[in-house]
Design a protein around this nucleic acid. Sequence first.
DNA 1: GTGAAAGCGCTAACAA
DNA 2: TTGTTAGCGCTTTCAC
Lengths: 334, 334
Amino acid sequence: MTVTIYDVAREANVSMATVSRVVNGNPNVKPSTRKKVLATIERLGYRPNAVARGLASKKTTTVGAIIPDISNIFFSELARGIEDIATMYKYNIILSNSDSKKENELQLINTMLEKQVDGILFMGGNITDEHIQQFKTSSVPVVLAATYDSSNEIPSVNIDYELAGYEATKDLIENNNNQQPAIVISVPDAPVNKLKYEGYLRALEESNIEFSEELVITVDYSYDGGITAAEKLLELEALPSSVFVTFDEVAIGVIHGFQDRGYNVPEDIQVFGFDNTKLAKMVRPTLSTVVQPMYDIGAVAMRLLTKYMNKEEVTDKNVVLPHRLEKRNSTTSN
Amino acid sequence: MTVTIYDVAREANVSMATVSRVVNGNPNVKPSTRKKVLATIERLGYRPNAVARGLASKKTTTVGAIIPDISNIFFSELARGIEDIATMYKYNIILSNSDSKKENELQLINTMLEKQVDGILFMGGNITDEHIQQFKTSSVPVVLAATYDSSNEIPSVNIDYELAGYEATKDLIENNNNQQPAIVISVPDAPVNKLKYEGYLRALEESNIEFSEELVITVDYSYDGGITAAEKLLELEALPSSVFVTFDEVAIGVIHGFQDRGYNVPEDIQVFGFDNTKLAKMVRPTLSTVVQPMYDIGAVAMRLLTKYMNKEEVTDKNVVLPHRLEKRNSTTSN
DNA sequence: GTGAAAGCGCTAACAA
DNA sequence: TTGTTAGCGCTTTCAC
């Protein structure tokens, strides 16, 4: 049926070891026999069986990627970064969605390990001790992408969320006469979001702004969550002059929530987002936001993982990529 | 090092065959020995090696998904549909991006086959004879998702693109005093887009509208492409009263292109999109569009693939899912 | 530069 | 109900 290395060996009058050498680019093969082998491979349409190879070599050139939700624009960009670098290094990706549920995550890690992946790229919300435990006892390296582990035990690639939150808030404060910006938080339990909030608080503190709790709004991580947030903000006695929204998609909902009720952004209220997904340029007014380089995070995380898989030396185990503020029209009246 | 089925067998005083039976849920095991085996599996932390299993059983419970670009919101929704059904049937997905390049596509198919996937889900633009050839000689089933193969030889899941294009155009014609809507096309060589265009032409014909070629605009498949399209439209002697844009993302660019130049949608020009990605509700005015059920296409395609993989009988090899028009504010002055 | 042979960890007859 | 024994298709010593 399927043609094996053994068939090729027989047809080419060499041993299977030689065929294996040719297939794997081992230099210890006489050019003439290499040519002969290559010819019969071509003739028979031989295609190496990666599963058999994996069993014999204990390497599958496959890595597992556990991601909350690939249909989320943030993660799909991240995934693209991962994929591109993986391809560059000849790895394939087994991609699975966890919906950020611990149970799914732990289960998926196990499945990936069963499939003998050479490494795991993990994206998630909350890293629990159980996660850490599983990562540390894993037989293959694990790298976290856009996922914060406060213990810093697991290699990771992130931006400085606290600083980013601080800077965005600071910008809003400075442009609004030292008034407290509101903040719209989603998935408040996820450490990265806590960090954004901490940055927000630090900025308030530094500007000696008296903190009003009612300006902290928690809503779903969704466009509709943003609409809801706008409604909540409009129910307050006084509309704050600005709002920091911790996800672009939610921020766009906030903008439209205001606009649909006759308010103008940025005139009535300025809106600052977070992530710089491509959505940020696809609204009117365009969204000022914190640039988080999703693609790069994915790419760098994958690169880092290859280093671990190849047992290369790693100097920087917890990579912090630069971020910046991109000011657009949702904060700038012009 | 790693604990194998053999270790478990020894520790539990049974043969590896029995352990295998327990692991695979084979009922021919006495409950007491099953319990004993399970206990030692637990105790030793045994984790079955899927690669060895794959080699022995010739099944990997892994399917390959070849997708143009996972960071595209359309495909990422599709991918989610695929993934969810795959999980339901205990399959894992190897996901790869092709950027719709034939060379990559062919290469990826080959890689997937080397990895011994049990089936392939293919999404792409142009299906050439070479593709068909490779699919037909593939040792595992292949299903196309949102990808048109005019020969209908390969199993597929689609909507009726021609009809959808026809209906959208028809709607625009009827709401605009029989004037020819413009059409903005991206990736014109892809058969699905040709079909949309054919539907457009049929609608014109049916309404006895004299066809003006200058109302056919071709731009990149991107938001910026939409901006460009709006510019091109504004360069015409007379602005058409409506435009059918064959992708939502481009349509949103078109809307903003007009708005940024002081024109109003739908008052100055109506805009109709295609796909109903979640972007459609995230613009103002909200986008009227053809609802293409991406998630369902992915899910149904994966389900279809499982049928082929299990050698179940398939009654409907080329599935055509229903679509509909979702009228929103980009075509309805209110 | 090439070949022989022993696994890799498991499944699946076939026996018992 | 359980065990024995071939492989699955390849890599990788170790000889020659």
